[in-house]
Amino acid sequence: MGFKDKHLLGIEPMRPEAIVEILDLAENYVQLNRSQDKRAESLTGLTQINMFFENSTRTQASFELAGKRLGANVMNLSMEASSLKKGETLIDTALTLNAMKPDLLIVRHPQSGAVDLLAQKVNCSVLNAGDGRHEHPTQALLDALTIRRAKGRLHRLSIAICGDIAHSRVARSNIILLGKMENRVRVIGPSTLMPSEIDELGVEVYQDMRTGLKDVDVVMMLRLQKERMDGGFIPSEREYYYRYGLNKEKLSHAKGDAIVMHPGPMNRGVEIDGELADDINRSVIQEQVEMGVAIRMAAMHLLARNDKSGKHG
């Protein structure tokens, strides 16, 4: 039993075997992407539309590259600048695109649940590229692949997620995925950036970096959004860096071989020390980007397979 779903909307409904199937297939694509000829055939003839209702350069580029390497026709729509400004609703936009018969919609939206809503209205497969503060499944999958490759396993690890948990879909998807794979997950951050009753999701909550990082295998830093830096949630950028910014000293409380991750884009000197981010012995941030393309290739490959078998079955 692997990944059988028509859509990839979140980690929450996925079974561990489905996660493993995506990771295993992604390993193949890592090899392909490192070779000279990066072409594969699994999306040949299919149309992939990237609909980003929220600006993103990195994620959109990753999906575009993944689709092109698999042979899909990829179209990018910058939704911010288009029909929404003319007053069209999300559902109408979805129905319009649906009528053009795409095979795969990659959607990012600033509101939680918006991608679920859209998926209910279209015939093709939908992949959630991030909805509000809800989920960002391919990010959690690429993080899982990165961890598995660095640590040789994806279970019984102690993993700390640090920073703005409250507003982070990356944190939610990772908490759920790492929990499903039977790891110990800690979240560290100021209480103003913690969602309510987060401990109910099976994580340990810390307000102090040094105690929270003690003996962890993986340190996952989150981006602190600019608009949250001043006054509202934390007193100032410099106080945040002093208490929660990751540097060598704080990292020394983690295991000697602990890896450092960040979903990007980084604020050097806010949540992470610049030098540490570039330390090839500790930081796997560049590898995360590489795994991102492979994971997205694997996820889209399997969605196309599932959709095809759904149509024939």
């Binding site: 909805d131 503060r133 109910e200």
Partner: peptide
């Protein structure tokens, strides 16, 4: 309403 459900769904919530 803030709590486990809202946190899981990522919905802005009120105590």
């Amino acid at each position: 309403t803030s709590g486990k459900f809202a946190s899981l769904r990522g919905l802005p919530s009120v105590t």
